[in-house]
Design a protein around this nucleic acid. Sequence first.
DNA 1: CGACTTTGACCTGCGC
DNA 2: GCGCAGGTCAAAGTCG
Length: 261
Amino acid sequence: MSDEMFKDLFYSGMDEYESIVRAFGITSDYSNINNEISGTTAMNSSCSLSSSDAGGGEEDDSVKEKEKQISKDVVEDNGGESSKAAGSGKSKKKGEKKEREAGVAFMTKSEVDHLEDGYRWRKYGQKAVKNSAYPRSYYRCTTQKCGVKKRVERSYEDPSIVITTYEGQHNHLIPATLRGNLSAASGTFSPSMLTPMPVVGGVGFLPAELSSNAGNNQAVGGGATVYSHNNFDYTYNGRQPEYGLLQDIFPAPSSFFNRQP
DNA sequence: CGACTTTGACCTGCGC
DNA sequence: GCGCAGGTCAAAGTCG
């Protein structure tokens, strides 16, 4: 079921995500999402739905155990750097603890895997994921000294849903020249092409209009909070261009989009 | 020709 | 220790 898959996709904040998915009816009817998210009760109700639905219960223990462990690491790690030893190829530094960063995950209904977000990305890997028919792609920000990575995968149950997980924080501005252009990038997020459903991990990344409800979500999992919002009716005109599209979606976290090294 | 993608191999962590 | 799964590297190929 998709719930199980999503638990694997999001290594922390599973409860929140699971709740949101169910609350929004993502696996079945996307037409309801806008209505549900527009109401402030969406998040509240989502919590009550958590872990009560069929299909995800049997994995809860193991998943949550894993989640706890990972979330602990996530919270302590704010760096965006790759953990690999410099210039040593595939080998990671021995004894270095593998740490996962707080992720910012977006669920986006899109036909294309790689969504333009204003930054330039280079694909460096692709792997088949267990329990998913769709491979996961790995991208890295092409800007030098920017260690931001992202993973892109498709929803198991609904291939039209693209799940993009960002790791790290950009320490630079959006490149002046994009493959395409900014307007094209904006078009990627336009309602005509897709229905953005950002699932945000990390306290403080919540859109202002939903942050009042965020406490319900943040309280459970600890670490990176997974968060979903499907009704971003933003216009990108008049926004600060340096933060890019994601910044438009999430006005608050300048530290995320413009992290200093 | 530079930027990017593809893809198989390799490495690490983790559970058994 | 072994096998699995996830993540990464890097050579080769592709594209504009």
